[in-house]
């Protein structure tokens, strides 16, 4: 496992060089959703007896942890195809698992920053929720899972354009369909069955339950855990195979 901290440290150093840009960019999306969907649509609206904004914030946090965790794929892509720094990791005497661990932990760190911004914005808008251990546990598991998926896919794609396609066809639909903006229970039964297979559905459910002071369903954590391990193993395999 030697070397993971070097990979993580490098990412943190690079993040530091553009920290204000990153924080601003992480704030824009949730701010727009809170204003547009929260105030524009749902100031008076309730979902299952919960004010819509209180319903929305945990969903946005789940979506943000997914997007920020997955976004490391773009950074890896740039490192690999543009700056070619990825070769520096390949020639170093470290194992693939160390590289993946460093990158995934960075993905989780980014996700924590994104979710931190959302909880801060929610507080500013007067929305008080319970950000307890189970909320953050689901956030970390969700970010871990999507960061692992990001590393795998970054090794498989061959260009930046392919990367954009993945975001358009995988991440964006998941963000909208996985219970972020509306309760999955309102969807037709067959759609609900399909959505149960999406990790974001489980992350949103668990984070929302925890934030609203309810007991989250343990099944959500089990699903996130199993999928997280699967994607992490896949990432290690993909990095090991990433040779000419």
């Amino acid at each position: 496992m030697r070397g993971w901290s070097a990979v993580f440290y490098r990412e943190i150093l690079i993040l530091k060089t553009k920290i204000f840009r990153q924080l601003a960019s992480m704030s824009v999306m949730p701010l727009l959703y809170i204003v547009a969907f929260g105030y524009g649509l749902g100031n008076e609206m309730t979902v299952n007896g919960v004010p819509y904004l209180a319903f929305l914030i945990p969903g946005l946090a789940a979506m943000s942890s997914m997007i920020q965790g997955f976004n490391i794929a773009s950074e890896i892509n740039i490192t690999r195809f543009y700056w070619r720094v990825f070769e520096e990791f390949q020639v170093a005497p470290i194992r693939s698992i160390a590289y993946v661990t460093g990158e995934v932990l960075f993905g989780v760190t980014r996700a924590a920053m994104g979710v931190g911004i959302i909880t801060g914005l929610a507080w500013l808008f007067g929305i008080r929720l319970s950000y307890n251990f189970f909320f953050w546990l689901a956030m970390v598991m969700n970010a871990f899972l999507f960061a692992s998926l990001a590393v795998s896919l970054a090794m498989l794609v061959r260009s930046h354009a392919d990367q954009a396609l993945l975001v358009n066809f995988v991440i964006t639909p998941m963000g909208f369909l996985g219970g972020t903006f509306f309760p999955v229970e309102k969807m037709p039964h067959w759609v609900q069955i399909l959505l149960e297979y999406l990790p974001i559905t489980h992350a949103a459910k668990a984070m929302r339950a925890a934030a609203l002071g309810n007991q989250p369903d343990p099944e959500s954590y089990v699903v996130l855990g199993i999928m997280g391990v699967m994607f992490f193993v896949l990432a290690v395999i993909c990095v090991s195979q990433a040779k000419d």
Binding site: A6, R10, L13, I14, F89, A92
Partner: peptide, 19 residues
């Protein structure tokens, strides 16, 4: 294949950590 945003020292330091 250096990290252009980072300093010379930081680029070398990351290599040392990898080893």
């Amino acid at each position: 294949n250096l990290d252009h945003e980072l300093t010379v020292e930081q680029n070398l330091d990351i290599h040392g950590r990898l080893f």
